[in-house]
């Protein structure tokens, strides 16, 4: 599989990343290198191996439904770039 510059542009747009023309070429090359490296795995025969979603074999890690005190509004907002009263403030979004 080979990535094109337009693939890189598309992924950058989805991630809201602004990249220059020079970066586009650079990232295309780098990403293709990575994919080529990963591609080596395809040399293995995995016909009889079930697909896995996690690297560890743990399942069913649960929590009981018991309320624990939250941070509180002040602390929750402490790291916000912008806040007003009890709210985070963001540029207007409307549909």
């Amino acid at each position: 599989m080979k990535l094109s510059t337009s693939d890189v542009e598309y992924v950058a747009r989805l991630a809201r990343l602004e990249i220059s023309e020079a970066e586009k070429d650079k990232f295309t090359a780098q990403l293709n290198d990575i994919l080529r490296y990963i591609d080596q795995l395809n040399e293995l025969d995995t016909a009889g191996v079930a697909p896995m979603s996690h690297a560890i074999a743990v399942t069913n890690a649960f929590r009981e439904d018991k309320v624990v005190e939250s941070l509180g509004t002040q602390k929750a907002l402490a790291n916000a770039p912008d806040a007003r009263g009890e709210f985070f403030r963001v540029p207007k979004v409307i549909e």
């Binding site: 624990v68 941070l71 009263g85 009890e86």
Partner: peptide, 22 residues
């Protein structure tokens, strides 16, 4: 449920804004 799906914050409706956040 009393708490959220992935943490122990309360799910109670109508609390003051951002008071049920961790």
């Amino acid at each position: 449920t009393d708490t959220k799906i992935f943490c122990n914050c309360s799910t109670k409706f109508g609390a003051s804004p951002n008071s049920h956040a961790c």
